[in-house]
Design a protein around this nucleic acid. Structure first.
Lengths: 100, 100
DNA sequence: ACTACCTTTGACAATATTGGTCAACACACA
DNA sequence: TGTGTGTTGACCAATATTGTCAAAGGTAGT
């Protein structure tokens, strides 16, 4: 599985943007984008969306992976991580039923 | 579904602790415990464990619910929250297989 | 060697978030 | 009145997160 950072790096390269140009286009410091692509810093959702738009890529999967990484980060090394995810899932499914 | 805070409040009352006594026992300010029980502040895992021990309650479910709440908090109002959870779950399951 | 790009790195400042402290409040009841 | 209960808000301190900047090292072309 490839991280959001690496996915966005690939997309950037395919779209023909240098790191600098991409950074300027979404109004963020080059250093930050560099670190984000390599996973040294966490993305913000806003930046993921901006980049997806810039590269003309579908953002849904990127956002899902972004959120998933965020969640996994919270649960890292937790003995009951999987159980917690399943509990959270139940909650969300329940909520979805009752509001839609 | 009952929050971790409310569960711990029930446990406290059943165990016969006043808020103050419980707070003293786990070495935390009363105000904090009060807020945590009512969900105005987030618990820390350490406090959940301490309280479970104090009330002689099984901590597994409490910890799972605690983590689940933490995760749901991250995903609140996210369109793709459910998908993100499922993606995270896959990751964890995969990881589990390959390390145990 | 020089120039012009590229990406990475680390140090630092600014800012936001979190956690803890404290005093006061309101309520009930002996 | 005095004692115990839980709640509230203001405040500070520690910590984490983000942004800024300058410099370094790599590569390619002239």
């Amino acid at each position: 599985m490839s991280t959001v950072g690496l996915q966005l790096r690939e997309l950037r390269e395919k779209a023909g943007f240098s790191l600098r140009k991409a950074a300027v286009a979404i109004d963020v410091d080059v250093a930050i984008l560099s670190k984000m692509e390599r996973g040294e810093r966490k993305f913000s959702k806003a930046l993921v969306l901006k980049l997806a738009e810039l590269y003309e890529a579908n953002s849904d999967k990127l956002v899902i992976d972004y959120l998933s990484e965020k969640v996994l980060y919270e649960l890292e090394d937790e003995e009951f991580g999987l159980e917690a995810l399943k509990a959270a899932e139940k909650q969300l499914e329940y909520k979805k039923q009752n509001t839609q």
